[in-house]
Computed example of a mutant assay.
Amino acid sequence: MKRILITGALGQIGSELTLKLREVYGENQVIATDIKKDNSEAAQSGPFETVDVTDFNRMMETAKKYKVDTIMHLAAILSATAEAKPVFAWHLNMGGLMNALETARELKAQFFTPSSIGAFGPSTPKNHTPQDTIMRPTTMYGVNKVAGELLADYYFYKYGVDTRGLRFPGLISNVCLPGGGTTDYAVEIFYEAVKNGKYTSYIDKGTYLDMMYMPDALNAIIDLMEADTLKFKHRNSFNVTAMSVAPEDIAASIARYIPGFEISYNVDPVRQSIADSWPNAIDASAAMEEWGFTWAYDLDRMTKDMIENIKKKK
Rank of each mutant, 00 (worst) to 15 (best):
K2D: 02
K2T: 04
I4F: 00
A9S: 09
A9V: 00
G11V: 02
K20Y: 02
L21T: 00
Y25W: 08
V30Q: 01
A32V: 03
K37V: 07
K37G: 04
A43V: 04
A43M: 04
A43E: 04
F48D: 06
E49L: 04
T50M: 09
T54F: 01
M60K: 15
E61W: 07
A80L: 08
A84E: 14
K85C: 05
L92Y: 07
N93L: 07
L97P: 05
N99S: 12
E106A: 09
E106P: 06
L107M: 07
Q110P: 02
S115N: 09
Q131L: 06
P137C: 04
P137I: 04
P137Y: 02
P137Q: 03
T138S: 13
M140G: 05
V146D: 10
E149R: 11
L150A: 15
Y155T: 13
G165P: 02
G165Q: 02
L166K: 00
S173V: 00
S173R: 01
G179T: 12
G179Q: 14
V194K: 11
G206K: 14
Y208K: 15
L209C: 05
M212R: 03
Y213V: 03
D228C: 10
K233E: 10
R235G: 04
N239W: 01
V245I: 15
D249L: 09
A255I: 14
I258P: 11
F261R: 14
Y265L: 12
S273A: 14
N280K: 15
A287D: 06
E289Y: 03
D300Y: 10
M302I: 04
D305F: 04
I307F: 07
N309S: 06
N309G: 02
